[in-house]
Nucleic acid binder design. Sequence first.
DNA 1: AAACCGCACAACCGCGGGTGG
DNA 2: CCCACCCGCGGTTGTGCGGTT
Length: 236
Amino acid sequence: MGRQPCCDKLGVKKGPWTAEEDNKLFTFILSYGPCCWRAVPKLAGLRRCGKSCRLRWTNYLRPDLKRGLLDEAEEQLVIDLHARLGNRWSKIAAGLPGRTDNEIKNHWNTHIKKKLIKMGIDPVTHQPLQKPQTESSSQGSSTDSSSAAISPLSEPNFPAKDQPLTSQIWMEALQDDSWSNFSTWGSESYTDFGPHSSEDSLNQLLDYYKDLGDKDCELGSSGNFNKQLAGMGEKD
DNA sequence: AAACCGCACAACCGCGGGTGG
DNA sequence: CCCACCCGCGGTTGTGCGGTT
């Protein structure tokens, strides 16, 4: 009954990765590609479970990762996407090249969530909180610097319909997904979105994509990179 | 200077979906 | 068609660091 643990817990190291482990994993993936994670630790000589290796690679070692805090445009995009997708972090991450689902999830929980609440917006429903602070009405659509970065959801200007790029991103991100089950999709809950789902962020995103496209030629986005690596290692 | 607190990030855990035998 | 396995996702927890009191 039940499912076997992803790895036998005996002899499997946990906790923070050392530089040596990182090096082993990185070298291995570079040589053989990120395939068959279950086998990776054995082959790479790591006392880790495959899951841990995969996580370490995707969240930290991948060469196409951006580091550092999300900028305003990215934050805005996360909010927009979250309004549409809910907690589908991997799908949201798909719209932000170089960012991982874990990173976005962390940023959301520690940062954006609080910002939205402060602005009187429910981070779950993206609707105004039940008990608005007296200043919330002004906050909601305010132009004060702190809230300007986040779209107050009081303006009927959600970008999806107007912004081909985000629409495309969503289509890509959501392709073949069950996102359509997301009950609030298209409901009026999400018709009122802020004016800051800005062209700025979209332009920046476009730049990301362009940039990534360029990099594909060298290292590749994760997808291409993976393919390259898989190609390198697979037929050994 | 020390203690405390909050934040940011990294990592783990359990579950569900997809797939092959 | 069923079962077992593997992978990926989302939620949660742990830890280190910086700022404040």
